[in-house]
């Protein structure tokens, strides 16, 4: 930079150069670059990847994850975590199917009761974390056992093969004659609502502030306990939705917990750029995280040369790599060194 000549002594305010601005913008979009890079790679490596039917497949595959990620975004933004979501998915599926198939209660009651139960478990998570000050990591870990334990107990460890029309509609129904699946629409709506809430509402602001600096939020009169509880309740509810959708997709209710749901959901949300420490990130980031995840999983399936037993390993490596790229690119690691 050249020194400036100036008539009046004092502070010069100089606009940052255009390259600087572009560099900053480019960095902020790191997840987008990751997504495009992966997309480009898979479309070159596989001729099936870019087909519309496959792109729709990606959306279907990430829909369940998107529902989990929606609620989880709220929780991570407040600086907490919810490890019980995978167990909730199983629990909700079993409850809905059990009420419908074994107790022969007509719809919509099984669906509503199952959703309500998941929301209630979210409330328990919230109360344990705030009122009893159990770290959410531990409280939701215990809840994960409770939910999966209930699922096994209720189902007596057996798969329930009979599911209701409502569940089937959620999981495999289509919107009119289009190829778009109902579950994609459900997931997209959940993301949209969450986006609006977090971005524009007072509650959304409180969620961010609670995670960014809890004591500051309290000093400004924010009831941070209630905000944390609300976030965990929302997460319970969306995990419940994910459970319904999942049963519909599989066509049966399985009592085993699919652990990859938990890892994938946290992975996707964090990959998008929502901080585990709270206060930073949001739904847009989560959407990118989900798409990256979906592209990665689906893309690997579309390259026939890859050993199917190596897929998990490759996914892990790429996930770690993508995380590193995101952190380095957005300059988070080097900015503040105090």
């Amino acid at each position: 930079m050249t020194t400036q000549t100036e008539a009046v002594p004092g502070r010069t305010t100089q606009a940052p150069s255009t390259t600087e601005i572009w560099l900053r913008r480019a960095r902020a979009l790191a997840p987008l670059w990751t997504l495009l890079a992966l997309g480009l790679f898979f479309s070159l490596a596989s001729d099936t990847f870019l087909r519309p039917i496959n792109l729709n497949n990606i959306l279907v595959q990430v829909s369940t994850l998107a529902l989990l990620g929606t609620g989880l975004t709220f929780v991570l933004l407040t600086g907490e975590i919810d490890l019980s979501i995978a167990a909730m998915v199983t629990f909700v599926g079993v409850v809905a199917a059990h009420l419908f198939a074994n107790l022969e209660i007509p719809e919509p009651w099984p669906t509503l009761i199952a959703l309500g139960a998941a929301t209630l478990l979210g409330l328990v998570n919230g109360i344990a974390t705030t009122k009893f000050r159990i770290p959410s990591f531990m409280a939701t870990l215990a809840m994960s056992l409770i939910a999966s334990g209930l699922a096994i107990w209720i189902s007596q460890g057996r798969i329930i093969f009979e599911i209701s029309e409502v569940s089937r509609f959620f999981g495999s129904g289509r919107v009119g004659d289009t190829g778009i699946r109902v579950l994609t629409v459900v997931a997209a709506s959940a993301l949209l609502v969450a986006f609006l809430v977090l971005r524009y509402t007072r509650f959304g602001r409180y969620v961010y502030m609670t995670g960014a600096n809890k004591s500051a939020a309290r000093l400004a009169g924010v009831n941070t306990d209630n905000i944390t509880i609300a976030a965990l309740v929302i997460c319970g509810f969306t995990a419940g939705l994910a459970g319904l959708v999942n049963v519909g997709r599989l066509g049966s209710a399985q009592p085993q917990v699919i652990n990859s749901f938990l890892i994938d959901a946290i992975g996707a949300v964090v990959l998008g750029g929502t901080a585990l420490t709270g206060g930073r990130g949001g739904i847009i980031q989560t959407v990118f995280g989900l798409l990256i995840y979906g592209t990665l999983r689906n893309g690997l399936d579309n390259i026939p040369q890859i050993d199917p037993f190596a897929k998990e390993f490759i996914t892990g490596v790429v996930l770690l790599f993508a995380l590193v790229v995101n952190v380095v690119f957005s300059g988070r690691s080097s900015r503040d060194r105090t």
């Binding site: 602001r205 960014a212 600096n213 500051a216 206060g279």
Partner: peptide, 16 residues
């Protein structure tokens, strides 16, 4: 303790 350092001034002021 009382400020959100990463947030904009106006948001800190209107928070309460």
């Amino acid at each position: 303790k009382s400020l959100m350092l990463e947030e904009a001034n106006y948001r800190n002021i209107t928070l309460p």
